[in-house]
Simulated scan of single mutants.
Amino acid sequence: MELYNGDLYWPTTESDDVVLKKSEKKEHYDVLVIGAGMSGTLTAYTLQQDGVDFAVLDGRKVGTGSTSANTGLIQYSNDIMLHELAEKIGEEAAVRFYRLCLDAVESLDQVAEDVGASEIYIRRDSLCFASEEADVAKLKLEYEMLSKHGFEVEWLDREALRERFPFEKPAALITKGDAEVNPLTLSRQIIRHLSKQHVPIFEETSVDEVVSDGEDWLVFTSNGTFKANKVIFATGYGPAPLLDSHRIDLNRSYAIATNPIAEFTEWEGRALIWETKRPYLYLRTTPDGRIIAGGLDEDKAETPHNEALMNDRAERVKEKIAELFPMYDLEVDYAWVALFGESVDQLPFIGEHPNRPNLFYLLGYGGNGTVYSMLGSHILSALVRGQVHPDADLVRLDRT
């Protein structure tokens, strides 16, 4: 499966390949983590913190899957708003899930500090604006629900928004506690950290088949057979073996990185920006002064190799930035398209296979994949150690 296509920005910020300590394959592991992108590395980090015996496998060189195409907006708010999620799963469960996401943003901050990546994990506010007048009522409901449950949120009407940003929209919310990240650097720093801790990591080890022998799982790979009591699939938007995928939609999204901008005096706090319309525009800045923006999502599970189409989408994203910030002289320096997955209810799938004991999945489908991966790593670490996690029911694989 081709996860992305185009000219990626993040690899240009990483000058060195990850040099791993050579790992000798053991006869048996307690846990195998399959996948060394953001989901796999965060899972591995948490397992290592919790003292689990495990190894990591990845079919590619580490950091060359979906993580390198991630736009790096870290937000606890979801593609489905809190008040909308409450209508689907109940207010108590919805608030519990949102708190998990907020806690995950804090955990990511600690991970970045621990692995020496604090300079690329930068805390930001988020601004969500009403795309049109009809969306103001929905945004107001969200403001009231967030306020009711103690989330730090600010309401801006049209005039207040115009005083603080150089564009006019009917209304907006500012939420606190989010972040931006260079996802490739963070995942690679985690891998470097784990390698120094002598965690066995086997890259360019593609998985061919996973079979139970009655007691353990045999994982047949291009690098021989691995045996483990438990297997965690942290495969991003790639295939999830032995799992029914009928409740998952794969789509594609376009993104660009602009030329560096001299200063962002008009962009208050360099906040992460998104909107109520679906599909929505999302944008952020980078430490070297670029704007990363994306959107124009399409319901197609393939990445096009059509240069004219790619150029058209890149120009359209640039034009949307210019509508908000007309004072910037923008050029498209990098443009790409990437697959992303969504579940029917907009929540991730995290937990044990309902019919195959000791097979686990961390599938962070949705717009907050990195946040879902962080919270999921704690759930899975508890489950593989035989513990009960109080929030595992929210994201279990067999939920209706």
Rank of each mutant, 00 (worst) to 15 (best):
L82V: 03
G59N: 02
I74F: 08
T64Y: 13
G90L: 00
N70E: 10
I89R: 04
Y76S: 02
D50S: 12
N78K: 14
C101S: 13
L82C: 09
L102A: 13
F97Y: 15
D79S: 08
S68K: 10
V95K: 05
G65V: 03
R60Y: 15
F97T: 08
A94L: 02
Q75H: 10
F54K: 05
A86Q: 03
N78T: 11
V52K: 03
I89M: 13
A86D: 11
D58G: 03
R99F: 06
K88H: 08
I89F: 05
G72F: 11
G90Y: 00
G51P: 08
L57W: 06
V95N: 05
E87A: 10
F54R: 00
G63Y: 00
R60L: 13
N78E: 14
G90W: 02
L57I: 06
I80R: 15
G72E: 06
E84V: 12
N78R: 15
G65I: 12
A69V: 01
R96K: 13
E92K: 15
A86F: 04
H83N: 12
S68F: 11
L57T: 02
K88S: 09
R96F: 04
G51N: 08
F54I: 00
R99I: 07
H83P: 08
V52L: 04
R99G: 03
S66L: 14
A93W: 05
I89H: 02
